[in-house]
Amino acid sequence: MAARGKNNPYYRTREQLADDVYNVLNSDKLSLGAKHAVIFETTWLWTEIEGKYTGCQYWSKKACAHLHESETIKAKILRHDHVVPRNYIVKRFLYGDMMNSEEVYSFLKTNLVGCILLKSEDDYLNEIGYQRKMPSKWNFGDNIWSRYTEAEIDVCEIIWEKKKGSVLENT
C-alpha cells in the first residue's frame, strides 16, 4: 500500500489511526470482517506513515547499503517488513482483551514497527519459518525483535532529515 501524503484527504495521523481501531473494535454495528479490514489496513498505514522505504526508522544493516537508491530500485531489492507480523496484531485486537483508546495507541506504537530488509533476508525469514510467525514461546510484551535475533539479522536505526528525506544519522 502506498503511503498517503499529508495532503491526501484520506491521510490519518497515528493518533487518528489508533482512534479508528478503538472505535471499530467498540462498534456493535460492524461485522468481524469489517473490523478485520480496518485493522489490517491500519497495520500497513501505521508503519509506512513516514514512507515505505525513505522515512522508515529501522533498516537491517545489510539493507542500509541501499539507503540512497531510487525508489524503483528499492522496490526490487528491499522489503518493508513488520517486525511483529500483521496477523498477530490483527488477532490480538479481534480476540484479545479490550483496550481503552490510550492502550490501543500504546499497543500499536510498541508492537507495530516497520523494518526494511533485503529481499534475501525476507526470504531467509520465510525459509526458517518466521516470515509470518514469531518464535513459538513469544508473547506480547516480549522482545519484538526476537525473530530477527534468531535469524541473525542486525538492525540499525535511521534518523531522517524530514525536509529533505535524507539520512541525518545512522546508528
Rank of each mutant, 00 (worst) to 15 (best):
E69W: 05
Y95E: 08
F93C: 04
T43G: 02
R92T: 04
T42L: 13
S60A: 11
L108A: 14
V83R: 04
L94S: 10
V83G: 04
N111G: 06
E102G: 01
I73N: 09
I128M: 03
K52Y: 05
L118Q: 09
L78I: 09
D123K: 08
W46F: 15
F107D: 08
G114C: 00
A65N: 04
H80G: 12
S70N: 08
E103H: 06
I128F: 01
S70D: 06
T110H: 15
Y88T: 04
K91Y: 14
K76A: 09
H68G: 01
F107L: 10
H68A: 02
K74D: 15
E102N: 03
S136C: 15
E48P: 05
R86I: 04
G114Y: 00
P85H: 09
Y53S: 09
K133G: 01
L94K: 03
L78R: 07
A63L: 02
N100D: 14
I89N: 10
C56L: 07
Y95Q: 06
V83E: 08
K74M: 11
C56T: 11
V113W: 05
Y124K: 05
N126T: 15
N100Q: 12
W44R: 08
Y124R: 04
T42C: 11
I77L: 10
C64M: 15
G51I: 03
Q131G: 07
E71R: 14
K61M: 11
A65S: 02
N100M: 12
S136G: 15
L45K: 03
H66E: 14
V83Q: 11
V104I: 10
E48Q: 03
R79Y: 05
